[in-house]
Design a protein around this nucleic acid. Sequence first.
DNA 1: TTAAAGATGTATTTAATATACATATATATG
DNA 2: CATATATATGTATATTAAATACATCTTTAA
Lengths: 148, 148
Amino acid sequence: MQLTQYTDYSLRVLIYLSQKPAQTLATITEISDFYGISRNHLVKVVHSLAINGFLETTRGKNGGIRLAKPAAQIGIGEVVRSTEPNFEMAECFNHQNNTCIITPVCSLKGILSEARNSFIATLDQYTLADTIQKPGSLFRSYMQAINK
Amino acid sequence: MQLTQYTDYSLRVLIYLSQKPAQTLATITEISDFYGISRNHLVKVVHSLAINGFLETTRGKNGGIRLAKPAAQIGIGEVVRSTEPNFEMAECFNHQNNTCIITPVCSLKGILSEARNSFIATLDQYTLADTIQKPGSLFRSYMQAINK
DNA sequence: TTAAAGATGTATTTAATATACATATATATG
DNA sequence: CATATATATGTATATTAAATACATCTTTAA
Ligand code: SF4
Ligand code: SF4
């Protein structure tokens, strides 16, 4: 059981933005350099975060991205729901493609649903504001990493 | 977020065995025919279930497999823990391969751990005996499916 | 001795994900 | 208006994990 890197990258972008001084813009290049990950991949991550209303983008010179609302109003559950391609715990969760012959009598799917729901419910207890405890520590951590 | 088919197949095997009359043996071929899934894949599924103590295998003519203990003593959580290849919700969960620069200051991993734990804790509330509500319905369901 | 069962190791296929590449569009500024 | 710099968008490719197939070995009842 894993989440996609796409989801983690989405959260990394939001975490980064949450630590920037309010109202300042970051660029995708800046963030991909910071984390050392594919800029191309981040472009799509950022685009979907914008479509889902988590951040605002500004094109053109001096453009960039920033959070669309305060970190404390961005739920981790919301973000993960919007980035994960699916939450199909077994074949029968996709009615179109399901070939499992015991579906009509199987209660396992209900158990798996309940487990998935408690996973997401836990995430719903937290917001972006809970991801970094000490203000400023994100960039201090970066400095330490690049100086060694 | 998905579980592997390997995990669902493992549970399907256990569900099937739980509905067989006690002490009778089933064969892998019988089960793969029942579900219409790859026999080769099931061979490995069954082998790992045996290694993990969920079922007993008997080689040779008239051999086969059966549950190693009553269905009510086989926890769904136990099974899933033993069949899923990993529960690494983000890159940093694998310390060897982790390249995430903010790991020292990031609290997201704790949130993701907690969510994963509540997923598994939910599964731990159920056993194999909870997967089929009506005795006999599994095979009746099969008959209906093949007769249409 | 044979048939029928699982055990084991390797190879291949498939599908999902991640990444790269190319080009379009928007906008601030000189 | 031209240019530089930012995001937007679509397509192609690469990588990886998972699923499946194949070949052979071992065990055991009859
Ligand atoms: S019906 Fe039950 S056994 Fe079949 S795919 Fe769904 S959860 Fe698995
Ligand atoms: S440290 Fe935080 S951002 Fe980095 S991989 Fe782990 S959970 Fe994701």
